[in-house]
Structure formats: structure tokens, C-alpha cells
Nucleic acid binder design. Structure first.
Lengths: 361, 361
DNA sequence: TTGTAAGCGTTATCAT
DNA sequence: ATGATAACGCTTACAA
């Protein structure tokens, strides 16, 4: 079934059918109705490749998971991001192509890049969770290919959507200080990820504003996994220096591991050590005590990335779009805000969308 | 840059360039070399849409996440499956399009279906985690469109890749019986998912073989989430009947919740109640006590689904391909096999690929 | 081994 | 408002 056949059956020309399909207003109501009827009868749908070839756009958005963050792909962060991206794409009648660099050393990377980007398989690309100085950025810029980063980029001339990592971290640490905590440790993410760096920066700033200096032995890098958080916490506990009375952890998964390590060390949370995490994903919020955390709007970030990309594709020489979404504190047991209770908290139900407001569940 | 221009620069015809690009052997070494040189110089890559239009294949595989399982998408099961799918696609120089039904009632569903399937946007589809009698199956069959289910289907005429859910469950319950447990409860997954049904069947069979009858109050359905497992366990504990001495849980996420509920109820695992989960995903294995579980090869399942689909696309009228991958037991603390230890276990490191062999970490 | 030429099913431009 | 007609960039018989 092709446009041509529909045209014949409806007694009009190919062009008219094309106009109907594409919602062009320059069609008489009579013709439109006849064509639509035939289309329905024949259950016709235009051929994607033919369309792309003629219109020079695929209506496909690429979602690239760089190799560097592939190991984190099992973290619920990515499903959340994907959901947001797909949702926005569905609304805009676009498709999503998932690009993952599955082997190291850039072998797959290069093949995928050539096939997908240079082969014009997609109209634009969203890069999930960028690492510092990812070479793909330079390559895309050079090729003049529309792209949006999830996670900010130091250069002023690239588009990105980010969450306020620094502000969120700052709020969390300031909150711990308000609880009277003075020796605040931090478990960061991988050092090559910008989000890690920003969260650390917020931690440092908050301490400095309170007249404290971050102590090197109290900052340990994890890898965003639960196990990484466990080991990082152990490392802090066994560092030989005076124990901290609080710890800010750069992801909920790591915070969950840290809680485990504290339990294994017979330390009470929040009595001995208060804990605040980062993410606010439902999946990782359930813990004993219930985790206080910095909530970031991941799905919204995905949606926003698509919106930005579509705009960039529409107006290729528009100035770079840079949007930072607010984070907010969700205060519960692990920081000492809520009393212990034997029932599960409904995390996420009372979240509000503001960077300064503090929600209590 | 087009084939035509490459041809001109290399002093050959369009066809020759096409042959070189597609690895056709009918090209003289001299010509091939010249063409390859020009292609490299110009950094040329064939236009995907033009290729698809002429060859009538897109080299795109659709990965469909039905709406019914969308809520489970945050479970690490899906990232694992996706990784397997993408990996196999990369190897075969195919792309993967992610299709999710993001709104209920089949609205998005229908739009996505028409656009992607009928618009020949993809050459075939992998359906992730099928529910009982998903209408999409009938539709794909009717359209004669190549597809593979992840998770078995009762009909003999559809292709699928599955894991041995029933056998895995059977092993787990039999193992609990071998530990001398007699009142074995089960927390199942959603009742409309075939995997849930199969795991329950394995549980029932194992009990029956041992001369026990499954007790209704000891079987509760969860939703595959941690919170669901928590509540299901609570329900079992408060059902009024004699407490079980073991519980088989249909997913590790739920098992993790169940462990929490047991801890909150001051019951000791495995002393008072032994627990075995299902999944074997690294992410959910970390717990106190370390979880014994049925390991299923999810990534491999994804890879295998792609292989089956590619074969089906190659030979459209081949008989349906049905492949069931083995599961195996990973025995650790929660069933009573390993002594308690304060350090984290390295889950997944010692896994073996056999349905009967029992691995101890 | 190489080239010629006819599609593939649309969109887009230009008349009418 | 409608219809010819020329792209779009490639694959694929078929011919040489």
C-alpha cells in the first residue's frame, strides 16, 4: 500500500494524499474526507524511509549512553531518564534510537557514531550523563550535529540540561550543619563525572560558609553503586581520624551501602552519624532508617532534553540552550528530622518542585 | 557527500562504490582500494534512509516495553535486558529503537504501533516481558511482522526466548525442603505475568513432590518492587496462620523488602525463616543476610532474543524459534548455606551457566 | 569485474 | 485547491 494507490482509490493525486497525511491545510474538506476514508479502509501508513529520504529528516532522536557511564546503567537513574525521553518523544511523534558503546576503546563507539550520526540515522542526539571532556562532544560540534547533554558542560557553546547539583549538595550539607553536625564527611561519585564534581563543590562551599574546612580524610570517592558506598563508608570509618558525625553521600544507592556499613560497625543513624543521600528515586529510598535525600527531577530532565533538542533541530543556528532544573531536600529519618517508625514511608509522594522549599514526608 | 560523488572521485560507477560499501566480493582489488581510500578521505557514510528505501530493510530492531510492565521499568531487570539487546545489535550492525507505551488505554500504543510497525520503521520487534494474552501479539501475527517475545507464550506458533522460571523456582523450593523447612511460603509477582505464573508453578510442583500441599494463606502476590515484597511479607506474617519457616520470593527486589519486613518483625533469617529470591542481579543481591537466589541470565536473554529475531527476519517463514535458558541457584546466607560474615559478598562472581549445578559464593 | 538504468515511496516545487 | 514532475541517495537486476 503506497501513497500512489491511496491516491488512485480516492480519485486524487499523490500530492493531495501527501498533504492530507501531513496535515497541510491546503486541501478541500471534500477531498480530505475522501482520502482519510480510504486511508482508514486500507489501514495505510506512510513508509518511514521514503519519508525520511524525501524530507531529509528521520524524526528519530538518538539517546547515547557513553561507554564511560555504561557500568552505571543498572542504576535506576537511567530507566528514569529513558522514561522521560521516550515520553516526550512519543508526544512529539518522534522515535528514540538507543545508542550504547558496548565495547571499550572506542571501537563500537566509532562504528556507532559513523553509522548513526554520519549516516543521518537520527536528527539529533541526547548524551546521557556526560563525563569530563568526552571526545564525542567535540566531534558532534565539528560535524555541526544537533545535540544536548544531560549534565552540564563547561563550555558556553553547547546545549545542556542539568539539575542543580551544587545547590542540592549545598542545601543538604547546610541542613546537616543546622542539625548541629560539625564533622561532615562526603562520599562522592566518580571523579571524572561533572555531577560528582558539582556535588562536591556544593559540599565544600557549604562547609566554608560555616567556617569549616573540608578534611581530606573525610572525603572518599565511590562509584555510584551500593557496594561502592559501602566500601567508601568503611574507608572513612577506618581512616584513623576522629569519626564524622554526619555524611553526605552523592547518590542514594551509595547511601544505602553506607547505611549498611554503619550498621555493620554498630553505629546508630542518625544518633551517631546523620546521613543524607542524593537522587530521590523511589527504588532506592526504602531503607532503615528511611533516607533523607536531595531529590532531582530525572524524568523531567529527560523530557526537557528532548524539548531542547527538538528546538535545536528546528533552528540549527539558535544559541545553545542551557537549562538547570531545581533540586530539593526530602527530609526524613536518616538526618534526624523524623522519628523512627516501623512502617514504610511513602517516599516521593510529597515532593514539591522548588529548589529551596523543604518537604517533609 | 553521496555515493555518486565518491564514484566520481574514484573514477568508477555508483554501483561499484555500493558494492564496496556492502562488502560485495565482485569488485577488483584495485577498484576496491581506490574507492576505500576516497571513502576514508571524504569520511563518507551511506545515507540510512536512502539505503532503507532501496533495500527495503531498515536494519533497526524495535524493543517494545508494553504499558503493562512500564511500572516495573525501574527494576534493574530492564537495563540488563537492554544491555544484552543493544550489545547483540551493535555486533550485527543494527540499531535499536525503544518503543514504550507511555500512556494507558492503548492511545500511545496504537500511535506507536502504526508509526513504527506499519510505517516499516523497524524490521522486527522484541517484546519485553510479556503479559498474559497481550493483544499486540495477535496484531503482529496478523500483520505477518517478525517478532520475538522475551518470556514464553502459551501458543506454539510464536517465537520467544525465556528462562527456566519453573525449573528455577522448583530448585529453590526443593533446596529449602532439603534444609528441613516444611512450611514454605511464596511471594509471587503480578498475576498477569507469565513469569510469575511459572515461578509459582515450580513452587507448587516442588511442594507436591515432597508430599506437601501449598497453603493459600502462605501465597501472596507482590508487584516485583521492594515495597511490594515488604507488604506481602507483612501480610503473610499477620495472616493468623502458623508462621512459615521459609519463603520463596519471585524477585530479588521483593526479597529485599521481605528481609526488611522480617527484621522489623524481629524474626531472624535464616534461623527463624529462610529466604530465597529470584533474579541474581548484582544490584539487588547486597543485603543482610546475603541473599540466596535463583540466577537468571538476563543479558544473555536479550542477546538471544536479537539473534532469534535476526534469523526470523532473514527467513520470514521459518518455524517459530523457542529457546529456554537455564537458571541456577546461588546459595548464600539467607537460606542457611553460608555462615554470617561482616564483609560484603561478591555476588555474581562465581556464577556458573548450568541449570542444575549449584554455585556457592 | 564493471556500468546502465530502473526503481524504492515519499516530499517539495512549480504550474495551473 | 490540485496535479505534474523532479528530486532524495541508494540497491539491484540486467547488460556488457
Amino acid at each position: 500500500m503506497t501513497l500512489e494507490e491511496i491516491a488512485r482509490l480516492a480519485g486524487v493525486s499523490r500530492s493531495t494524499v501527501s498533504r492530507v497525511v501531513n496535515g497541510d491545510p491546503r486541501v478541500s474538506p471534500a477531498a480530505r474526507q475522501r482520502v482519510e476514508e480510504v486511508i482508514r479502509q486500507q489501514n495505510f501508513h506512510p513508509h518511514a524511509a521514503a519519508r525520511s529520504l524525501a524530507s531529509r529528516r528521520t524524526r528519530i532522536v538518538g539517546l547515547l549512553i557513553p561507554y564511560a557511564v555504561g557500568k552505571l546503567f543498572r542504576d535506576p537513574f537511567f530507566p528514569a531518564l529513558i522514561e522521560g525521553v521516550v515520553q516526550a518523544c512519543n508526544e512529539a511523534d518522534h522515535n528514540v534510537a538507543l545508542m550504547m558503546e558496548t565495547s571499550e576503546g572506542g571501537a563500537t563507539s566509532d562504528r556507532v557514531y559513523r553509522r548513526v550520526i554520519r549516516g543521518r540515522h537520527v536528527d539529533g542526539v541526547i548524551i546521557a550523563s556526560s563525563v569530563v571532556e568526552d571526545p564525542i562532544v567535540a566531534r558532534l560540534k565539528e560535524d555541526g550535529f544537533p545535540f544536548v547533554l544531560v549534565g552540564r558542560h563547561p563550555h558556553h557553546d553547547v546545549s545542556f540540561v542539568d539539575v542543580d547539583n551544587r545547590g542540592g549538595a549545598h542545601m543538604a550539607v547546610t541542613h546537616l550543619l543546622a542539625h548541629g553536625r560539625r564533622r561532615i564527611a562526603m562520599i562522592t561519585g566518580p571523579r571524572n563525572m561533572i555531577a560528582s564534581i558539582d556535588r562536591y563543590a556544593g559540599y565544600v562551599t557549604a562547609l566554608q560558609e560555616a567556617g569549616h574546612l573540608p578534611e581530606p580524610a573525610l572525603t572518599v570517592a565511590g562509584d555510584f553503586t551500593r557496594r561502592g558506598g559501602y566500601h567508601a563508608m568503611q574507608q572513612i570509618l577506618s581512616s584513623g581520624v576522629e569519626l564524622p558525625d554526619a555524611v553526605f553521600v552523592a547518590s542514594d544507592a551509595m547511601a544505602s551501602g553506607a547505611l549498611q556499613a554503619l550498621r555493620d560497625a554498630s553505629l546508630r543513624v542518625p544518633d551517631d552519624i546523620a546521613v543524607i543521600g542524593f537522587d530521590g528515586l523511589e527504588e532506592t529510598l526504602v531503607s532503615r532508617p528511611v533516607l533523607s535525600t536531595v531529590v532531582q527531577p530525572i524524568e523531567e530532565e529527560g523530557r526537557e532534553a528532548v524539548r531542547a533538542l527538538l528546538e535545536l533541530m528546528e533552528h540549527p543556528d539558535r544559541a545553545p540552550l542551557q537549562r538547570v532544573l531545581p533540586t530539593h531536600l526530602l527530609l526524613r529519618q536518616s538526618c534526624g528530622c523524623e522519628p523512627e517508625s516501623p512502617v514504610h514511608q511513602k517516599g516521593g509522594d510529597s515532593l514539591v518542585a522548588s529548589s529551596v522549599e523543604v518537604a517533609t514526608a
